[in-house]
């Protein structure tokens, strides 16, 4: 909901078809919408899907009634365009069926436990538990950026929507058409990937 104030300010102009307001909307939402499109159709078609989505959005804006937030409405249109594209290509693969395919993070977490489920060793001590201090570490930020770019598309979409944009979990489930438990699994794995990077950085000072 980071752009809510700007959305509210622009909504009347958007409904009237104001081009400057539409350009600002593109500026705010193109990148997060691309993340969602990638999660559903993959890299190859994501840009194309987004172009089609913007045309649909432009056409539908005069009828936007505000029953959901503008952000949710936009993301739902992207989801629909992405699904239309997949069904055209006869390659619809629901995200639900791909959830089990990213096991690296869980594997690496599992290796930290003994057979009886207890920790092999204590989790490492961190020099700082302060998110603000961590954010000031340029090199860590670079490590995190690199890690975010290697997350699976579905993990990246859920992480972006939940932690970066602080969207409601149920809204994320609706947009991505995933069960609540699967969204939470994806979110937890994304967070664990980031945590491992911070862990390594705290221990070695490198990625």
């Amino acid at each position: 909901m980071l752009h809510k104030a700007q959305d509210e300010e622009d909504i009347d102009a958007l409904r009237r078809g104001d081009r400057a307001a539409f350009t600002r909307l593109v500026q705010r939402y193109h990148r997060p919408m691309l993340v969602i499109a990638r999660a559903i159709v993959g890299d190859v078609w994501a840009e194309e899907v987004l172009q089609e989505a913007w045309v649909s959005i432009n056409r539908a804006l005069p009828r936007f009634e505000g029953r959901s937030s503008l952000q949710t409405w936009l993301y739902t249109i992207v989801r629909n365009e992405a699904r239309t594209r997949l069904s055209k290509e006869s390659r619809y693969v629901s995200l639900e069926s791909t959830i089990g395919s990213h096991e690296d993070t869980i594997e690496s977490l599992n290796m930290q436990f003994k057979k009886d489920g207890h920790w092999q060793n204590s989790p490492a001590n961190w020099h700082t538990d302060s998110p603000l201090q961590l954010l000031e570490q340029t090199q860590l930020r670079q490590c995190i950026d690199r890690t975010l770019s290697t997350l699976s598309a579905d993990q990246c979409a859920v992480f972006t929507m939940r932690d970066l944009q602080q969207m409601d979990l149920q809204e994320i489930c609706n947009i991505l058409e995933l069960s609540s438990s699967n969204v939470r699994v994806l979110l937890h794995r994304a967070r664990l990937s980031l945590m491992q990077v911070i862990d390594r950085y705290q221990e070695t000072g490198t990625c």
């Binding site: 980071l2 350009t23 600002r24 593109v26 500026q27 705010r28 193109h30 990148r31 997060p32 989790p123 961190w126 538990d129 302060s130 998110p131 603000l132 961590l134 954010l135 930020r141 995190i144 992480f159 972006t160 932690d163 970066l164 944009q165 602080q166 967070r191 664990l192 980031l194 945590m195 911070i198 862990d199």
Partner: peptide, 24 residues
Amino acid sequence: RHLKTTIEFGQRLPEPEPLSDEEA
């Protein structure tokens, strides 16, 4: 504690750079 720090860290990360005026 580490997970909570990570979550708070993630929530404070800046969103990806918005598109430039020209791109938008």
